[in-house]
Simulated scan of single mutants.
Amino acid sequence: MKLAVVADIHGNVLALEAVLADLKCEAPDTVVNLGDCASGPLWPEETAAVLRETNWPTVRGNHDRVIAAGNIPPENRTDSFTIAHLSTESLTWIQGLPPVIQLSDDILLCHGTPDSDVSYLTENVIGDSLHRADLDTIRSRLLGNDTPLICSGHTHIQRLITLTASRQTIINPGSVGLPGYSDDTPVLHKAEAGSPHARYALIEQTSDGWQIEMRALTYDWEAAAAEAERNGRPDWATPLRSGFFGQLL
């Protein structure tokens, strides 16, 4: 079985189209989406419309949850923009996304950790940035879940970790559409992929175990950055162009 894993598209339909073109060449058996689909000052409706057509198994990200609930305060500029630009059909689709998907006995899909869409599975916040957590901390965040392959997003940083004792593999495919961001949960910090590429992962199950390839694709990230600027979000334009967030406020 060949599985493609995408996550954190964040309304960047140009990056999504680059991934779709690559998937045509790779021809996976299944594509799964780890959430945070449309949120952002780019092309939320266009992105959601494409995803609705794919019918990929898709989990709900933390931004998807906020959008689905509605009543977004105006100070949340990102999700306010998103919900204002979504069709009824796309909003209904987002509202129907599950928080976790047990794809098979061997594969679990979640956005953050199995029980939280805002918690990091493999990272700790140290200072103002993300750093890989130790293995005991990662195991504790799985809450005893022993699924052999766990696919998790949320950090926007590609990550592959093997838990030898439990014979588990954890994979974060990185972000399709936003290679850097800031967040204030649990404290103010930033995440940076280090380049503007659109990222996803390919996983193939063989007799020797999981064969995993991390992909990083070029696309017109200048056009994405310009769209963010047109919509009043230069803070998005910087990571879209560079993969680095820049200075925290």
Rank of each mutant, 00 (worst) to 15 (best):
N172P: 08
C110T: 15
D115V: 15
G180W: 06
L163I: 15
I157D: 00
L143C: 10
C110V: 15
H111F: 08
D128M: 13
A133L: 05
N172A: 12
D117I: 04
I138K: 00
L103Q: 06
L121Q: 06
G180S: 09
R139L: 10
N145Y: 05
N124D: 14
I170T: 03
D117T: 11
V176N: 02
S129R: 10
S182K: 14
N172I: 02
T162E: 15
P186F: 13
T185P: 00
H131C: 06
D184I: 14
R167Q: 15
G174Y: 04
L178M: 14
R159L: 06
D134I: 03
S104R: 11
L121W: 02
T164P: 07
L160G: 01
I138S: 00
L160Y: 13
H131N: 08
P148D: 08
Q158D: 08
N124E: 13
S129P: 00
N145I: 12
C151F: 10
T155W: 05
L135Q: 12
L135T: 10
G144S: 07
G144D: 13
R159I: 03
N124M: 09
R167C: 14
V118G: 04
G144K: 07
S166Q: 12
N124S: 11
T137M: 06
N145K: 00
V176T: 08
T162G: 09
L121R: 03
D117F: 02
T169R: 14
E123Y: 15
R159A: 07
T169S: 09
R141D: 04
R139V: 15
D115E: 13
N145G: 07
D183N: 14
A165F: 09
Q102S: 14
S175N: 12
L149F: 03
Y181W: 13
R132M: 10
T162K: 08
G144I: 03
L142R: 00
V118S: 11
I157E: 01
G180I: 03
A165R: 10
S182E: 14
I161L: 10
I107C: 05
V176C: 01
D134F: 00
T162C: 10
P186Y: 11
D106H: 14
L160S: 07
N172M: 05
L143H: 13
D105Q: 13
S166H: 09
